[in-house]
């Protein structure tokens, strides 16, 4: 809701076994970020956000 570029899906793992297998979901919750990185379990908001932002391209230095 804070940014139009963000989409958040809640996926029921047992109803989508192929997707769960593709993303190697063995325990829940497991959060897949842009098909490339993962967060295992529940984390505090700040830590969760940091993990997500780490997977994105770091902003250019001149943006500082």
């Amino acid at each position: 809701m804070e940014n139009d570029l963000i989409q958040a899906d809640c996926v029921e793992a047992t109803e989508f076994p192929e997707l769960s297998e593709r993303y190697q979901v063995y325990a829940v919750p497991r959060t897949v970020i842009n098909d490339s990185s993962y967060i295992e379990g529940s984390l505090p908001e700040e830590t969760f956000l940091d993990h997500i932002l780490e997977t994105l391209t770091p902003p250019a230095d001149d943006a500082k």
């Binding site: 989409q7 958040a8 899906d9 047992t14 497991r30 970020i33 842009n34």
Partner: peptide, 9 residues
Amino acid sequence: PLHLQVFVT
């Protein structure tokens, strides 16, 4: 674009 997929049961 940022796509989050949270797998749950």
